[in-house]
Nucleic acid binder design. Structure first.
Lengths: 190, 190
DNA sequence: TTTTATTTAATACGTTTGTATTAAAATAAT
DNA sequence: ATTATTTTAATACAAACGTATTAAATAAAA
């Protein structure tokens, strides 16, 4: 009987407005009012979908991680050589121009979770662990590799490059980053 | 004629209180009042040393970068094999337990500078660039290495590991991290 | 001891904040 | 057309905020 509004869509819309505010003003500047304004909604409208500010912020930030995990995991379904798939998955963590905002939100999310000491699970990292274990079980990795260390090595390298890309330290393009990561994969693939 | 107070020392004391507040409550939670309370000073006292909140926060965050750069550059003076010096310098970026707060502040500083788009210079990165160039000029690196790429590679790897250490992804100890980095150095040293 | 510049403390003001409340508007079913 | 229920809008309020102002306390120099 009411005006029908797709709740999920509307929440996602508010979440994306939240991303913009966080990228522009930081997590501390992400007030319910400023988010409502960014989303072209009233204060009460936003409050209707999220009961508290914390709920809204956590939803918005979590969405970044979820979407990233989904994007990464999509690659696993493709029918390509295992090394190419792995490379594509890792490269998904290097944000192109139009996903810099998401990475900025991710950075704030890291700090936030660190402060709240709720840093146990990270679906992106767990996804990488899963894939690497599959590769190893399938006998695609050299016998002498220390899997635990290589997972740490690879994920740290790709995240470090992504971070330094944002910070302006990385002067090389995506193609050369890709080649750099491929060299690392060559080191451990049979 | 006045009560003599070492300005620099007092400012550093306030800055360190600021670190604790930022690590606990985030940059957005770092109000002048909460910092004064953390430093056991009055609101007016803090305001006496810093005219605005922004000035205080920037001073405190900048101090982290300065101290880190100083620590790194100290290693350059030691009389040890070049590879060992380089390794020691890079390992300085892996925060031990008692410097986790500084790294948390550094994380917030990154976000802050990104937002303000004042991300041009970073003394830590510039220090690493300097040292690597020196090594290369001294003929200590293999002729075929692409210096630009290796600098990006090394710094990204060490910063990625540091970040993932904070996030709880890194399950190996400092010694094994050190060995991992040393393997990378072996790849480029003659 | 008196003087004097520095340091601290106390208080106040105008904004912005999160959240609550309440009523109005909108629309699908009857 | 009426009804029922969801969605939106408007307003209010206490708390926390940055900053300014003013007076008090402090301690080295005279």
């Amino acid at each position: 009987m009411p005006k029908i509004v797709n709740h999920e869509e509307r929440k996602a819309l508010i979440a994306k407005a939240t991303w913009n505010v966080i990228a522009r003003d930081g997590l501390g500047g992400a007030s319910v009012r400023s988010i409502a304004k960014e989303a072209n909604l009233s204060l009460g409208a936003v409050r209707h979908y999220f009961n508290t500010q914390e709920e809204l912020l956590e939803f918005a930030m979590q969405l970044v991680e979820e979407q990233a995990t989904d994007r990464i995991m999509e690659h696993a379904k493709e029918s390509l050589p295992p090394k190419t798939i792995t490379l594509n998955m890792l490269m998904e963590l290097i944000p192109p121009e139009n996903r810099v905002v998401e990475m900025q939100v991710w950075l704030e999310y890291i700090s936030y979770k660190l402060r709240k000491k709720e840093l146990k699970e990270d679906s992106v990292h767990q996804g990488i662990v899963l894939i690497m274990n599959r590769l190893n079980d399938a006998g695609l990795l050299k016998a002498e590799v220390n899997l635990e260390e290589e997972i740490i090595h690879l994920h740290a390298l790709i995240d470090g490059i992504a971070l330094h890309l944002l910070m302006g330290f990385v002067t090389i393009g995506r193609d050369r980053i890709r080649a750099l990561i491929e060299r690392e994969l060559d080191r451990i693939f049979t």
